[in-house]
Amino acid sequence: MQHKATLIYNARILTPTGWIENGSLLIQNGLIAKIASYETILDEFAEAQDRMDACGQLLLPGFIDIHVHGGGGYDAMLGSVDHLQGMCRFHASNGTTSLLATTLTATNEEIIRALDCAAQSMKVEREPDGANLLGVHLEGPFLNKVRCGAQNPADLREPSIEEFEAFWSASQGTIKLMTIAPELNHAEEVIRHAVQKGVVISLGHTDADFETMQRAVEWGATQVTHLFNGMRPLHHREPGAVGGSLMLDQLAVEMICDGYHVHPSLIKWAFTVKPEGKVLLITDSMCAAGCPDGEYVLGKLPVIMNKGKVYLKQEDGTEGGLAGSSLTMIEALANTVAFTGMDIAEIIPALTLHPATQIGLQNTKGTIELGKDADLIIVNEHFQVCQTFVRGRRVYDREA
């Protein structure tokens, strides 16, 4: 479907080669058609029918969240197209233009229902009104009970090619990413099988030692799920899963940068020790993100959100361990700037290009370049998202 050309001008545009001050960008048919300095606006952008003054604010590539369970009261596990679309709208208002709906450990039937719903939702042809659903991140059920965190231990089970195939069929091939504990029985054959299907393997909720992490890389694993959380910690005589995540350069690492899940100094350190392109910022947010403090449910587990922190609710009503987050991607960016002292331009790829590269979409998403999808956000000096564009269509306007 063709749309009228849209011009965004008077913007500070972040491109792979640096900032363009007083920049202008033309969107045509959902793609980035032209990028130029403000001085060329009359000559280069005469065809634009819709013009928007960015007022000198930042024009950035839209965020790509590859680990998100819900938000705005919506939950990816409920097997509801309305819930998937709702969470996509919520996260678009916080700068996310693409996401992977992320499952939780549950029964076979519950996971299959969620996967089928995601596949059906992706088939619906309609104008975007929120973040683009790129596919599914299958987190569970092939996880270790010793490191299950907020995953329901009653539903955890050993890896099985047969069960993976049932998930793959239900998802209609839309599983892009799978978290698995590599030390479990049959993990090797399931990892190798999934890799052959084109699934990115992320090691997580794992009690693996360093040697097992090394072997998992040989089997095809290329990623780590929420670094430091839900994994065997670093020890000077046994580097564990954390040590493997940091020392094995083949592994990209997710991080939840809310200041609760990972100490700010460790966030800064991870950026210094991992190679370029191997740090991925995620939210791991659940349905309570963007909602008032109170009691919620994560899968089948009762949780409490208090001042933005989400905890498991224990039998005596007190707060247990962390259970997902209420983080948004724009908050992750603001926090990481504060925690590390790095420039915005240095951090942005961890929310855009690097996750796009992990799931094989770097040629169409993740940077502001000619011919790429016009997935864009305008952000002000207070780290507030002012407008969000998905495939060239404005899906969020803070002033509206």
Rank of each mutant, 00 (worst) to 15 (best):
I35G: 05
T388S: 15
V68Q: 09
A289W: 08
T336K: 03
L156G: 02
R12S: 14
S326F: 02
V337E: 03
N229Q: 06
L227K: 03
V385S: 06
A241I: 05
D373E: 15
M342R: 15
S169H: 12
T340S: 11
Y9D: 11
L115I: 07
P233Y: 00
G259M: 12
G392M: 04
M1G: 05
G240M: 01
L248S: 08
C287L: 14
E21R: 14
A187E: 06
G86F: 08
I304N: 02
L25F: 12
L322P: 00
G135I: 13
A119I: 08
G73H: 07
L351G: 10
R237L: 01
N380C: 14
M286I: 14
E110W: 02
A11H: 06
E295G: 06
D249N: 15
W168D: 11
P16S: 08
T283E: 05
V190W: 04
T102Q: 12
F164T: 12
K123R: 14
N29K: 13
A332G: 12
Q387N: 11
L84K: 06
C117V: 10
L143T: 05
P349C: 10
L333K: 12
H382G: 09
R391F: 02
C55H: 13
T107D: 01
S202E: 12
G56C: 06
R157L: 00
K372T: 04
P302C: 02
E165W: 06
L84Q: 09
H382P: 00
K309E: 09
S80P: 07
A48P: 00
D284Y: 06
E254M: 02
Q358T: 13
I20N: 13
V390L: 07
P349A: 11
T336C: 01
Y260V: 14
F271G: 06
I35T: 03
A131F: 07
L78I: 04
N29R: 11
M329N: 14
A46L: 15
V303R: 04
M329P: 12
D53W: 05
L203K: 04
A11K: 09
K307L: 03
S37P: 00
L134P: 00
G79D: 10
A101Y: 04
Y296Q: 11
L184N: 03
A92T: 07
A76K: 13
I66N: 09
F90K: 07
I267H: 03
W219V: 04
L84Y: 10
C386N: 13
G70I: 13
E183H: 01
A288V: 13
Q85N: 15
A48W: 02
A131C: 10
A131N: 08
E165G: 04
G290S: 10
P182A: 04
R393N: 05
V273C: 15
V385P: 03
I282P: 02
S160W: 11
F45L: 02
G230I: 02
D397S: 09
A36R: 10
K145I: 07
G198Y: 10
E189D: 11
I20K: 13
V297D: 11
Q196L: 03
D209S: 04
R237C: 03
I35N: 06
M247D: 07
S37K: 08
T367Y: 01
E39V: 06
I348K: 05
I377V: 15
T206F: 04
W219S: 04
I13D: 09
L26C: 07
V124D: 11
T388G: 13
T318R: 05
A5C: 07
Q250A: 15
F142A: 01
V190D: 02
R237F: 03
Y396A: 09
S98M: 12
